[in-house]
Amino acid sequence: MATATANYQDCIEACNACLADCLACVEGMLGKESMNDCPKCCLECVAICRACVEAMAIGGEHAGAFCKLCAEVCQYCADQCGAHDHDHCQKCAESCRRCVESCQAVAA
């Protein structure tokens, strides 16, 4: 299991950063209007990032499948949040894009 965790370390770090930035985006959007699915997409992103980290941390049989889905959800979130000018949305979108790259590398 230690080997699996070591192989996943970059992706785990990207998912954890994405999770934190998505939560900050949700908080930043409180009381603000949204013309799209932000911040709802952030909550979905948080859920899949958390599940993905847990699957990788235990070297789970389906960690790659979690990573594939995580990349899809994070790409959607990056698109939604990236459409807003708020600093927290832009930071969230950037973090989501990094997570997409890391997850795609693990899922491949």
Rank of each mutant, 00 (worst) to 15 (best):
A2K: 11
A2Y: 01
T3M: 14
T3R: 15
A6C: 12
A6S: 09
N7H: 03
N7I: 07
N7D: 15
Y8I: 13
Y8P: 09
D10C: 15
D10R: 15
D10M: 14
C11Q: 02
C11D: 02
I12H: 03
I12W: 06
E13Y: 05
E13T: 03
A14F: 08
N16A: 09
A17I: 06
L19V: 04
A20M: 06
C22Q: 02
C22R: 01
C25D: 11
V26I: 07
V26G: 09
E27R: 15
E27V: 12
M29K: 05
M29T: 04
M29L: 11
M29S: 03
G31P: 13
K32A: 12
K32D: 08
K32C: 07
S34Y: 04
S34L: 04
S34V: 05
M35N: 10
N36I: 00
N36P: 13
C38A: 11
K40A: 11
C41M: 09
C41E: 05
L43F: 10
E44M: 13
E44R: 09
E44H: 07
V46I: 11
V46P: 07
V46G: 09
R50Y: 12
R50I: 05
R50C: 01
R50A: 13
C52A: 06
V53L: 10
V53E: 07
M56C: 15
I58W: 04
G59Y: 06
G60V: 07
G60N: 03
E61D: 07
E61C: 12
H62K: 11
A63L: 01
G64Q: 10
G64H: 05
G64F: 10
A65Q: 14
A65Y: 07
A65I: 06
F66N: 04
C67L: 09
K68R: 15
L69H: 11
C70D: 09
C70I: 05
A71E: 03
A71D: 01
V73D: 03
V73P: 04
C74Q: 10
C74R: 04
Y76A: 15
Y76N: 14
C77P: 06
A78G: 04
D79L: 09
Q80F: 02
G82C: 08
A83Y: 06
H84E: 13
H86D: 15
H86I: 12
D87E: 15
D87T: 08
H88Q: 05
C89V: 05
C89D: 12
Q90E: 14
K91Q: 11
K91S: 08
K91D: 10
C92I: 03
A93V: 08
E94F: 08
S95W: 05
S95I: 00
C96S: 01
C96F: 05
R97N: 14
C99M: 06
C99E: 04
V100Q: 04
V100C: 10
E101D: 15
E101H: 15
C103Y: 08
C103R: 04
Q104E: 15
A105Q: 07
A105F: 10
V106Y: 13
V106T: 02
A107W: 04
